[in-house]
Design a protein around this nucleic acid. Structure first.
Length: 574
RNA sequence: CGGGACGUGGCGCAGUUUGGUAGCGCGCAGCGUUCGGGACGCUGAGGUCGUGGGUUCAAAUCCCGCCGUCCCGACCA
């Protein structure tokens, strides 16, 4: 492509109010344009990157036996009602009506439709299957943000494994795991795989791939000395045993004006250190009030509460003060579970077996001491509820846990039979018995992956694309396009590189050199060859590698062969 | 949804407090001088001031409604 003819509208001023570097660089570099909140146009440069990422994914999916298909994204609401997700997905599902008034939904993931297709399978002999597509997904996000990182319309590679039994599911899951490792590596990312919560997707096990980045929204815990790593929505840590002494009598005592864990601990250090208190929170889960108990120095991880309660994604919220007063007769600060009956009480496992604890008495300005959790509180469900914090100890080897933030670039789920049962996808085994097909579901967001690459690879001058996903692999920067000999050389090089299979951009614009250098760096082309009168004179080409701005020289006679080889080697990405 | 802010040529902004009929930088077009790290001169094109209503002799400016966008909190690829 000749730059002078290309639609590459770079801007040199950053868009206001976005904290994500990738957003600024992709807009400034002329890769994307925003149309509406969470809705983006891919300009030619962006589209080229998008296609290359898609091709990497396609190659790796095909390599594990995937078959590509394409499903509609406009679905009858009936299908979502059938799987139970019409309500479960809440407002995130785009819902609309056609001219006849029939309810429709826009696909936000497609387990349902693949489940319907899977009902065309009848025999174990047809399994396993790996089906995938790359297609638009719609999600009515409450808050689109950070450019491409969180949008309402995006492309997902979603794939689905279909198996007769659990070992088969495991194999399909592992194949995807391996494929994802390769895909992200080829894209130039170093995403790590972490244990995750399955959320609204259901299923038994899931792993997220997280690219470390401040722009991300996923919090992850990793052990500094072993391989333990998990999303905080699921992460656990080891606790030191606390010696509570002998159990004792339950006793009320006055605590005028003491409303916080901290205040109570400071005024009664002997009996109410934070780890000797029971923190009582009231949540409304799926419309029902729930009393949530944690150790005083621990914080609630809401996703864990949702998982424990089997509630939908947006199914939990803290109760309002007036709801709490009506339920327990006291205000936050004096709440407790001692003697409470009739509502669900979910307690964190860190409280199991504890005695001589302190907690609110459900009367303002009064607390209990000597609480024996097992004896005095009618816990209806024990669960892991607390959020792991930085610096805690690993459950596997006692190592230090680090808490960090990243971008979720992929997520793989072991689904089970929920969707195959809902849509009647059963096959017969060799004995003639029918079994629901066991499904797995696997997703990668292309545009988010693109933004993640930029987040992971940029400098003050702009983007640094890896060759594998760069919009162009090489830019020929012509210093004096008005000089005949220079332009003739540039044209020849352009043709020769193109013939050699290099994705080459010829910067033949009538611009000053500084502008061209700066632009090529902003849009992040991995290799630049400067072609000017000097080079025509000397016969020596100047090559600048974008990464590290490493400069080298080659005589023009060797240039095409040597540089094409270098690019060829880097193209695969690993 | 709760809280905060903003909406003015393509982009980034000033003007709003104190109403008087729109300006700056970049970009764009033409001509000329330039040209190995973001050049300069001259000329010029381009604006329903988000939108609907109200107040006023007069509204970008004051009042009300609506729409949109961004940021902070609860969700996901």
């Amino acid at each position: 492509m000749r730059w002078s003819q290309a639609f590459i509208p770079t801007l040199r001023e950053a868009p206001a109010d976005s904290e994500a570097v990738s957003h600024k660089l992709l807009v400034r570099g002329g890769f994307i344009r925003q149309l509406a909140a969470g809705s983006y146009t891919m300009l030619p440069l962006g589209q080229k990157v998008w296609l290359k990422i898609g091709q990497i994914i396609r190659e790796e999916m095909n390599a594990i036996g995937g078959q590509e298909l394409m499903l509609p994204t406009l679905h009858p609401a009936e299908i979502w009602r059938k799987s139970g997700r019409y309500e479960l997905m809440g407002d995130n599902l785009f819902k609309l009506q056609d001219r006849k008034g029939a309810d429709l939904a826009l696909g936000m993931t497609e387990e349902e439709i693949f489940g319907i297709l899977a009902s065309e399978l009848f025999s174990y002999k047809q399994l396993p299957q790996i089906w995938y597509q790359m297609h638009t997904k719609f999600r009515d996000e409450p808050r689109p943000k950070s450019g491409l990182l969180r949008v309402r319309e995006f492309t997902m590679k979603d794939s689905y494994t279909l198996d007769i039994d659990l070992p088969g599911l495991d194999r399909g899951f592992d194949k995807h795991h391996d494929a994802y490792v390769r895909i992200f590596a080829r894209m130039g990312l170093d995403a790590v795989d972490v244990e995750a919560s399955s959320g609204a997707m259901g299923g038994s096990e899931s792993i997220e791939f997280i690219q470390r980045s401040e722009a991300g929204e996923a919090w992850v815990v990793t052990c500094e000395s072993c391989d333990y790593r998990a999303n905080v929505e699921r992460a656990v840590s080891a606790l030191e045993t606390i010696d509570d002494g002998e159990t004792s009598e339950l006793e009320r005592f006055p605590t005028p004006g003491l409303r916080t864990i901290k205040a109570l601990a400071e005024s009664h250090p002997d009996i109410a250190a934070p780890d000797r208190q029971i923190k009582s929170l009231v949540y409304v889960v799926d419309g029902e009030p729930v009393l949530v108990l944690l150790r005083g120095d621990h914080d609630l991880q809401e996703q864990k509460l949702l998982d424990a309660a089997g509630a939908p994604e947006d199914g939990a919220r803290p109760a309002r003060p007036e709801e709490i007063r009506e339920l327990l007769g006291a205000d936050p600060g004096s709440l407790g579970a001692v003697g409470v009956t009739g509502i669900e009480i979910i307690a964190d496992r860190a409280l199991e077996g504890r005695v001589n604890m302190t907690t609110g008495a459900n009367e303002d300005d009064w607390h209990y001491k000597g609480v024996d959790v097992g004896r005095d509180i009618g816990v209806t469900k024990w669960a892991d509820l607390r959020e792991v914090t930085d610096g805690e100890r690993c459950v596997k080897d006692g190592g230090r846990l680090e808490l960090w933030k990243g971008i979720e670039v992929g997520h793989i789920f072991k689904l089970g039979t929920e969707y195959s049962e809902a849509f009647g996808a059963y096959v017969q085994d060799p004995e003639g018995a029918s079994h629901p097909i066991i499904m797995g579901s696997y997703g990668i967001g292309l545009e988010r992956g693109m933004a993640a690459v930029v987040e992971a690879s940029n400098d003050d001058n702009g983007i640094i694309w890896p060759v594998s996903v760069a919009p162009y692999e090489l830019v020929l920067t012509v210093i004096r396009p008005d000089d005949e000999a220079t332009m003739a050389l540039a044209n020849k090089l352009y043709d020769d590189f193109a013939t050699a299979g290099v994705d080459v951009l010829l910067d033949d614009r009538d611009e000053r050199p500084g502008v061209k250098f700066a632009d090529s760096e902003l849009i992040g082309i991995p290799y630049r060859v400067t072609v000017g009168p000097k080079g025509v004179e000397s016969g020596v080409a100047e090559i600048t590698e974008r990464k590290g701005m490493v400069k080298s020289e080659l005589v023009f006679d060797d240039l095409v062969a040597a540089l094409s080889d270098r690019i060829e080697e880097a193209r695969f990405g690993i």
